[in-house]
Design a protein around this nucleic acid. Structure first.
Lengths: 118, 118, 118, 118
DNA sequence: GTGGTCTAGACCACT
DNA sequence: GTGGTCTAGACCACC
């Protein structure tokens, strides 16, 4: 058996910010805190903060403008894709857990439509 | 922000065994490996293995009979409940991730029924 | 015939503490000595001390707050139940010893009301 | 704190036999098994069996007749006293447990007369 | 062989 | 400082 290890901090922070973007708490084009400021907010090293922005940039969710700072992408199509990716991931994870119980996608639909409060 | 830590080994192993019980890979009443044997299988200390069985016992999924070993509970009602709990958890986790995206249970149903392959 | 064995140390200590809680020598919400301190007081290993607190916690008599310590439950209803349980146990044990002598509960009442000093 | 130790086997066996005498399972004057026979029955050493009879004899509950064996005392007054002693002990033990709960003999009577099933 | 108990000592996370 | 986790190894009781 393989034991799980903690995800790197930069990934945890990046994921949190992705969630904020997908949910709209961070708007398209909005300015993100600078590296030093983020380092304080998240109690991390400035180098780690930079790693976070690099990750978000590579995913096309942020843009860094020299001398101005880092901004949420204003590519609404990309942002829309992000939402779809996250929904897709959430559903995929559920189906992956349900499968070993012998439950299919149809079963999931049935359970969701049942009156139980999940 | 709170950073995640690794789940304790005993919990990871217990969770893996729970999954095996829920999926039927481990049958009701079946004997589980002894503490020392499990310690070898999972590369853990016998005391940690005992911790695993204690957890499963507290959840009513195993029974330990002194001098004989530990066995999967033969309480089929409990086992059935376990399956329901796990399905419920999987669905609940999904809804929790979908909510911040502005997606409801009805949206989840719609997405599951769409032709996309998740 | 089955010969009696000594009760495990953790149970003896737990029982002593239960008695202190039931008698009010330990008040609801009161802080109990930390694991290491208890280990010294009772001349046991810190791990055994932890076993004691685990037992008391499982019985709902203590609450452990990480980084703070272990405290007597402030659930007065539970504490009241404990008193009733202990009284019930004491009476049950007596009746169990009296039964083989052909003495019933009514006899016990009669003996208690007699002027003999027990 | 003082930890309990196991009672000596001879005492445990003697106590078991006392209970049999008090309850009438062993009648006044009845012959008890010989030392070797008892040793087998209780899985103890013949010397330990002898120790058991010595104890019972000192308490006036048995009589040893050279060449014949050991017999339950036919002193019915003594046997009656035994019954009273045992009842007294049972009640005394109960009161000793009730005292720290702030419960008196009168409370014990009240509890015994209540409709609860102990 | 099994699990149950106990000791000894390490490291980590939380407060 | 606290409790939580993990390791290592001992001895006992039960089957």
């Amino acid at each position: 058996m393989e034991y799980s290890t903690t995800a790197p901090i930069w990934l945890q922070v990046a994921t949190a910010i992705k969630a904020d973007i997908a949910s709209g708490r961070l708007q398209a084009g909005e300015k993100l805190p600078g590296g030093r400021e983020m380092a304080v907010q998240f109690s991390i090293n400035p180098n780690t903060a930079a790693r976070v922005y690099r990750e978000l940039e590579e995913e096309g969710l942020c843009e860094t403008r020299r001398g101005l700072g880092t901004f949420v992408s204003d590519d609404t199509a990309r942002l829309q894709t992000l939402r779809r990716e996250m929904a897709r991931d959430a559903i995929g994870a559920m189906l992956k857990k349900l499968a070993p119980l012998g439950l299919t996608r149809a079963d999931a639909v049935r359970l969701l439509q049942s009156e139980e409060d999940f």
